[in-house]
Write a protein that binds this DNA or RNA. Sequence first.
DNA 1: CACCCGATTATCT
DNA 2: GATAATCGGGTGT
Length: 214
Amino acid sequence: MRLERSYFEDKTYRVAQSLIGKVLVRYIDFFGKYQKLTGVITETEAYGYTDDPASHAFKGKTLRNEAMFGEVGKLYVYFIYGNYFCLNIVAKSRDTGAGAVLIRSVEPLEGIGLMKIFRKTNNISNLTTGPGKLAQAFKITKKHNNLDIGDKKNNNHIYIEDSSPLSRYHNFIVVESTRIGISTGTDKKWRYLMRVKNLSHYQFLSSAFLSKSS
DNA sequence: CACCCGATTATCT
DNA sequence: GATAATCGGGTGT
């Protein structure tokens, strides 16, 4: 089941936490062939508004961050460190002006061959384990800023699904911690990570996640 | 494995 | 002119 817009209308940190175990889906036209890329979301962070000095929205609306102030269920994609893109989904409760969830890591499921090409690596355990890396693996760039993933009429090539081999087992827990890569707002525990309870249920996965969890 | 550092450029002040 | 919600390569343990 594809997540609808209403899913993203809640406190940002709650959406961030609940996205763990969901599946990022991306269809891409690769030399005329329609290819599917998917991955289980294993790490997220929430970024708020005036309550959160680490958030791009903290000081108000600018050209870069305007998506964070817009409709929930749209993407906020920004360029960072001269090289990388970071994928966020706008999420906030109705009475909040801005907020988004940063997708920090996924576990690759489908389209791994194509991800390797986009990442220019054969190392499967290094494909999508970081915000810059997963944007590269899924070929997500600033072109996708403001893309609406909350309504299939507006786009049918990037969205999030509620079903996956992992979420079906429900054999994972979500742990929280402080966010990383920031210098302010370091007290907030708005980083969420998937940890599996029973590794034997996850042998169909082959990448970094298993070695990290064991 | 842990830490350190340089790359590289859009965006903001 | 400075900074950045990162990454990968290098060095040392």
